[in-house]
Design a binder for these strands. Structure first.
Length: 243
DNA sequence: CGATTTTGACCTGCGC
DNA sequence: GCGCAGGTCAAAATCG
């Protein structure tokens, strides 16, 4: 079975994926019957109170991930539990814990951007070239985590890939750092069909710049690049184009 | 033969 | 200080 077939299988159920950017979780869940003219957007999902922004939660939490709370019919499903794990920091800063915490000066954590996709292939094609440099077993998970570095010289972006232990069909991808170069795929001739690259102040700096068509920094609603989705999910790009 | 992957060893940070 | 877990290194193996 080809990768394209795998993506097709995912899209038959509608597009479902979630992601985190700098400790804030986002989710996207497109119903199968969505109106083709609808804008495809990600929406802010800030927990309240919001431990996601607790600066003391900075260096040793498990990989950031979230699973859409609305994916399952049962609100008490394990997927909803996974969101709780992603939205709260482990042990020392649970939501509702108002005790002052010992805050250490820590090396600034590399910005992260994590998202979840439903796919049978682990390493989703994102236009960049990656070299695997490690693989580790993950506690409480039967699936290992793979570590990748961008192969471009002077680019220190890393990517972590693992499968969700709650749902083995979900792939958790975490980007660390920001590319200092264009996507090789873009340079190879896709520029003609892609919008101009976003500027370096791109708010979700760990993500390939061609993922999104626009960013609203004060109201974080993202519009995904239709051509990118078409490429990733083997969909008809005309279905995804804005009216 | 160069690039990439595999995999065990090693390093680091954190909690107890 | 010790043990655990996450992350990285680097030599060997594999691939194209």
């Amino acid at each position: 079975m080809s990768d394209a077939d795998n993506y097709k299988m995912g899209s038959q159920e509608g597009l479902q994926f979630s992601f985190l950017a700098d400790h804030t979780s986002f989710m996207y869940n497109q119903p199968k019957q969505q109106n083709p003219s609808d804008t495809m957007s990600f929406f802010y999902n800030t927990p309240s109170p919001s431990p996601a922004f607790d600066p003391s939660c900075s260096s040793s939490e498990p990989p950031l991930f979230a699973v859409n709370k609305n994916l399952g019919e049962n609100p008490n499903s394990s997927e909803a539990a996974a969101v709780e794990e992603a939205d709260s920091c482990p042990k020392h800063c649970k939501a509702g814990d108002l005790k002052p915490k010992k805050v250490k000066e820590k090396k600034a954590r590399e910005a992260r951007f994590a998202f979840v996709t439903k796919s049978e292939v682990d390493n989703l094609e994102d236009g960049y070239r990656w070299r695997k440099y490690g693989q580790k077993a993950v506690k409480n998970s039967p699936f290992p985590r793979s570590y990748y570095k961008c192969t471009s010289q002077k680019c220190s972006v890393k990517k972590l890939i693992e499968r969700s232990y709650e749902d083995s069909t979900m792939v958790i991808t975490t980007y660390l750092g920001r590319h200092n170069h264009h996507s090789p795929a873009t340079l190879r001739g896709r520029a003609a069909v892609l919008p101009p690259p976003l500027q370096p102040q791109f708010g979700f700096h760990n993500f390939p710049e061609n993922y999104f068509t626009s960013i609203h920094p004060n109201f974080p609603q993202l519009e995904i690049n239709p051509q990118f989705l078409a490429d990733q999910f083997n969909m008809d790009s005309s279905f995804l184009q804005h009216p």
